[in-house]
């Protein structure tokens, strides 16, 4: 149960990322897709906020979108899990609702 939150915008472009983190409840899942994967990068100024959220939420990034932007799995913040499109679908069906942060 719980909510699957998706973020498709870079935290450097909009506040969607911060707003998502502020509204995700314990036990929810956060998935970064499209430009949202920019926020998954290790060493970015958003990494600490993301790392803090890992204590209460599972956080994923969509592998194909990382690859498309030249990022490798080892570039991603520790604790953030990678999924492919099938994994995206699984997360959608596992959670009670999907909340997209545009």
């Amino acid at each position: 149960m719980g909510t699957l939150h998706t973020i498709n915008k870079s935290p450097f472009e909009r506040n969607s990322f911060a707003t998502c983190l502020a509204h995700a409840s314990a036990g929810d899942v956060i998935l970064m897709i499209e430009d949202g994967v920019v926020g998954a990068r290790k060493g970015s100024s958003f990494a600490p906020a993301l790392a803090a959220k890992l204590a209460s939420c599972a956080i994923y990034a969509l592998g194909p979108d990382l690859a498309a932007r030249g990022m490798k799995p080892e570039d991603v913040l520790e604790g953030v899990k990678l999924v492919d499109y099938a994994g995206f679908v699984d997360l959608t069906t596992e959670k009670a609702r999907v909340c997209a942060w545009l």
Binding site: G2, T3, A22, H23, A24, S25, A96, R97, V98, C99, A100, W101, L102
Partner: peptide
Amino acid sequence: DRAEMAALIRSQDVILSF
């Protein structure tokens, strides 16, 4: 407040974002 908004999101069946 933000915590109440988070609870509101948790209580829904369908969420549409704009």
